[in-house]
Design a binder for these strands. Structure first.
Length: 280
DNA sequence: AGTAGGACCTGGTGGC
DNA sequence: TGCCACCAGGTCCTAC
């Protein structure tokens, strides 16, 4: 499985872009209507039919498919959602909730065991005020994400720095894995109040966030167990994780056993030696 | 306003 | 072996 954060969603978008650009939607089958948030399932299907896919992009952890006729299909994979291209004649795997039939005989299948994932279809003109997207914060891999902007984000908040990093309305795309990895690389204890970071630490954290995300993308994301992307390939970044999922194992930097704690309800892995909590 | 915690969900895991 | 409680976590919602 995969926990789709920015690098995983980016990988899915890049993979699907080659296949989907220029394709026409022949029809839609919805097996689990609750997956389609809006409009209601029947309108969703009829509005999609006949449209051409003209662009694919990512915003935070959202996938956006631009369609002819100025419509946009927005998809969020949440925890266990997957988008897979298959031939029509291939049997549907379990938990296939929506199928978008393409005019080349293939299908774009939305598969999601836990059924947290969602999709929306809306006019492109409404995108700027569409709440889930309009509320998103900075894109960490664009030039708007500067050390200064990170500093401005952290400085007024007493919440744990990790909680701030996970807040999508401030920074869009980090999830539990990459937040833990970035904090470890920056040598910052995840429970530190965001406002307590020194200028040097903010700079390290800024660099670490960029590095882990770029490396994640370079390795096609992080894969646990049997996840594959739209082309049936696995990600490889799980082999480079330094703390996430490694509680009790030695820190790869110093050998100290990786520790585990809960922060804002999330399991958090960190190295007590590399990421000390400074006494004050 | 900012923060905390529960709800949503199911597959995998570990304990007995 | 079989059963079951528990855990995983992104986002929304409610409560303080």
């Amino acid at each position: 499985m995969v926990l789709p954060e920015l690098p995983e969603v980016e990988t899915v978008v890049r993979t699907l872009r080659n296949i989907l650009l220029g394709q026409k939607i022949a029809g839609v089958n919805i097996f689990r209507p609750e997956v389609v948030k809006e409009p209601e399932a029947k309108s969703f299907s009829s509005l999609l039919a006949g449209r051409e896919i003209t662009a694919l992009r990512r915003r935070g952890k959202f996938i956006l498919l631009s369609l002819s006729g100025d419509q946009v299909l927005v998809i969020h994979l949440r925890m266990t959602g997957r988008l897979v291209i298959s031939k029509k004649e291939e049997k549907h795997p379990p938990h296939t909730h929506v199928i978008i039939n393409l005019d080349d005989g293939r299908e774009l299948r939305f598969i999601d065991p836990r059924r947290f994932g969602r999709m929306w279809l809306l006019p492109a003109a409404e995108l700027p005020v569409f709440p889930p997207l309009a509320g998103l914060g900075m894109e960490p891999l664009t030039e708007e994400f500067t050390v200064t902007r990170l500093q401005e984000m952290l400085q007024p908040r007493r919440a744990p720095v990790k909680a701030v990093l996970l807040n999508q309305s401030l920074l869009a795309g980090l999830g539990n894995i990459y937040a833990d990895e970035a904090l470890h690389r920056a040598g910052i204890h995840p429970a530190r109040p965001a406002c307590s970071l020194t200028a040097g630490e903010v700079e390290s954290l800024h660099r670490a966030i960029g590095d882990v995300l770029k490396e994640g993308i370079a390795h096609r994301g992080t894969t646990f167990r049997d996840y594959v992307d739209g082309e049936g390939k696995k990600g490889g970044f799980q082999n480079f994780l330094r703390v996430y999922g490694r509680a009790g194992e030695p820190c790869l930097t110093c050998g100290t056993p990786v520790a585990k704690m809960k922060i804002c309800g999330r399991t958090t892995s960190y190295c007590p030696a590399c990421q000390p909590y400074p006494a004050n």
